[in-house]
Amino acid sequence: MQIAILSGKGGAGKTLLAVNLVNLIDEANLIDCDVEEPNGIFYFPIDYKKTDVNILVPKIDDKKCTHCNKCVDFCRYNALIDFLGKVKLLPSLCHSCGGCKLVCEFDAITEREEPIGVIYQGDYKNHKIFGGELNIGKESGIEIISQLIDKADKKTVNIIDCPPGNGCSVMESIEEADYCILVSEPTVFGLENLKLVYELTTIYNKKIGLIINKANSYNNVIEDFAKSNAIKILGYIPFDKELSKLNSNQKIVSDNKRFKPYFNKIIEQIRQEVDL
């Protein structure tokens, strides 16, 4: 069972929810796919095994290259440039599609590995915790996300903490998800961002539920939208100073007596939607 947690903006509460669901669901694993700002692993102070992640990028043999520029014209990402008598690669733009190698008629292109980041893996009680980190200066963490998702056992409950937004890295994260939980905060800005991820999950035809984080007296901003689109509200996380303080100190708030019931209630609601 793959459950992805999404939100249109950063700071909505994806990681807060993900970490606490993992904590309360027996044998659930965490897959933190936000490789650009990974913080899921901070909540679980355990020893992590680190594995390097590489992508394949083209290597051009200047002796074989005839400067026909087929590869340069082919590259949708403009990662190749023919200049100063050499076809040069800009690795940060390369998406590792391998197309340049295919279109080269002179066998001038081979592939080499380029390191882009690492994967962290560790055990916390009976949970497996996975996280990835994209190296500074690299533009796309898709390969790390893809390897992260492959690492987790699909037969168990995996909570996938997505990157914010609705871009490529989020699509990669939710692709295999059986259920998507959207997290929003009750502001007009929060609503606009929620609409973006809602649209994405609709395109992907995903079963979804909604959590309102930082719940306060303005919840109706989100509730009205949920009602008019027939989205089930799974629960609320209160707008609470103590909760924020605990969370920002990397404490798992569902270990606290006061906050545990909110998350248990959410899990109860999720169980009505999917088999955990």
């Binding site: 990402y77 403009n78 990662a79 440039i81 023919d82 733009l93």
Partner: peptide, 14 residues
């Protein structure tokens, strides 16, 4: 261009 407009500009200038 979604990606690499700067790269193409550099190519153009050359």
């Amino acid at each position: 261009e979604a990606h690499g407009a700067g790269v193409k500009t550099a190519e153009f200038l050359m």
